[in-house]
Design a binder for these strands. Structure first.
Lengths: 339, 339
DNA sequence: CCCGCTTGGGAAAACGTTTTTCTGCCGGAA
DNA sequence: TTCCGGCAGAAAAACGTTTTCCCAAGCGGG
């Protein structure tokens, strides 16, 4: 098909069509759109009108080819897209999508080969930046071979302190929980949490013990109960705690599943919650917290805020104002009926 | 910095550098890489060696600009990224990432404005195709204004039968559940499920009734118990069923949360599961199914397979071999201790 | 009245590929 | 020996922008 001279070519309108319709050159049309360079307001109006009329949308590949920017960031999740990475991911998408930046999703499933593969791919696409997120809060080794690309680690910080990391503040979480329990008159607090080799469990436990010490208190059972992140463990641990220290008047649990297990055991042992014993969970996983009987007081880790912050800091880094280091997002206390 | 003539220019190697090193023209180098056109094997080897040496990676923007393909598909999720869309999304990412296609993530949060916004964005990026996924199985209106872009609807089918949709087969799910219960000698089966205005609840219920009729059976309580997708509803409904039809010997539940609520109530009423009453859930949401006491027999909807299929059918459509219509992915029965 | 400065706008050179066209060259057949 | 066909490879034309340069006109001041 030969286009009639002077008429827009077939298919999508291109800048040349706009220019022709507005009676200016391509360069001028471009200037009108980008705002660079000077021109009579009237001319700009003509161009804008032509854009409107033809429903012109610039070809991003052409733009990117020339400017070297792709208006795209890679979002690398190392461990599937689970309960934890999802809100981070959404927060990031939210903060980025507000601009004209889009998110390329990469799932490595914890496989180093796959991670490298995706990395190459992202570099081939000349992404403007990368956000790396994981499932655990344990630090992870930084990506290799991405020298020039700004990167932010969310949720799982980088082991390199010169990288930019955004994490949830475990200390504030422990503090909110402990202070809340103390404020409601509890003093014999047990702590049941996940595996000792998980940073999340370890950190929350350490802070809990420290904070109690500030009030000259100790854990009800004299020690932290490390185990698994499961309801079953919560049930078993609750039995054990009741056996060791029957006068325990509060459980602070490492996550909501454990808390729910504890709640079930307490109920089945006829112990009134929150009348006799209070329970505080962690994560504010609504499915768990609301289905618990009674509904669970818990710590909200605000992961979508972690994602948003990561995105904003990435934008800063892309704009060459990086702020290296580990940044924390505070937790929030959500009070329900278990305390 | 002025590049020394004959030496690779600063920064990333470009095809011209490769060509220079191999002693051929740019065009020839390109042919060596794409495999188009004829050339002496030896020449090709020289080019390949140069590629290796310079670690050359083609600029995708330049490629896309010329070919019109972006090697990118948009993944539009209409309802946040929840429990249901996540596996679909991962399945799709898996199937696509195997090739060199990447996934652009768009979250509309059920907002039509935002959907339109993302759609424009995807079109501006000249994506090769779009996968649309939602949280509910209810049909959704097709995207508007994407004439030339191949699109596949996953999980939530399009209302237009000429579109390509991939959904989980509710009928096979109901069938697996009912046949399993019948096979284990249950005949007085109750059905507790979600809201009547959800297609998922409606469809599963309809098929269940039909399948029972084939065996000349009826529901134990004479009707379907519609309610909510929650444990609390499961508990309430179980009480009601036991009151109406105390001889009920099996519960088929619309999802795993309801099933878990039912299990709790049965246990608290001293009814042995599976000795006296069997329970079958739906979704195989491991967190629920495994934490249930006893662990739940349930229907696995194989959502990641839905995602994979959607991706494969999208690839077909991109390759202009579309197969319009609603395609189903069969469910699987996962037997645990509740039946 | 002329000169230089500003200002609007056009022409053209990038950006890095792919694809099409074109040019030698070689071998084989008449 | 002279064509002709085929083939390897070079040259050049896309793809659709942005940006840099350049020119012409207008205007004020000397």
């Amino acid at each position: 098909m030969t286009a009639v001279p002077g008429s827009p070519s077939a298919g999508r309108a291109k800048l040349a069509d706009v220019a022709r319709l507005a009676g200016v050159s391509v360069g001028t049309a471009s200037k009108a759109l980008t705002g660079n360079g000077r021109m009579r307001p009237e001319t700009r109006q003509r161009v804008l009108a032509a854009v409107e009329e033809l429903d012109f949308r610039p070809n991003q590949h052409a733009q990117s080819l020339h400017t070297g920017r792709s208006w795209t960031v890679g979002l690398m999740t190392t461990d599937g897209i689970g309960r934890f990475s999802t809100p981070v991911l959404l927060g990031a998408e939210d903060a980025l999508g507000a601009g004209k930046i889009s998110v390329l999703l990469c799932d490595t499933r914890g496989d180093a080969i796959r991670e490298q593969h995706h990395l190459r791919n992202l570099m081939d696409r000349r992404v403007d930046g990368i956000i790396v997120t994981g499932r655990r809060t344990d630090p992870r080794p930084p990506l290799k071979g991405i020298e020039p690309i700004p990167t932010v680690y969310a949720l799982s910080p980088s082991t390199d302190p010169d990288d930019i990391s955004v994490v949830s503040d475990d200390r504030s979480g422990a503090q909110l929980a402990v202070e809340h329990l103390l404020a409601t008159g509890r003093t014999r607090i047990a702590h049941v949490t996940g595996p000792a080799h998980h940073a999340a469990a370890q950190d929350r436990a350490r802070h809990t013990v420290e904070l109690l010490k500030h009030s000259s208190l100790e854990l009800a059972t004299g020690r932290v109960h490390f185990g698994e992140w499961s309801e079953a463990w919560g049930r078993r641990a609750a039995e054990a705690v009741l056996h060791i220290a029957p006068d325990t008047d509060a459980f602070f649990c490492g996550n909501d599943q454990i808390a729910r297990g504890v709640a079930d055991t307490l109920r089945e042992n006829g112990l009134d919650v929150p009348g006799k014993v209070a329970i505080v969970g962690y994560d504010n996983w609504d499915i768990m917290a609301l289905a618990c009987r009674p509904p669970l007081t818990t710590i909200d880790t605000d992961l979508s805020e972690v994602g948003r912050q990561a995105a904003l800091r990435l934008l800063d880094a892309i704009g060459s104002r990086p702020e290296p280091g580990r940044h924390t997002v505070p937790c929030r206390l959500v009070v329900r009926e278990s305390s």
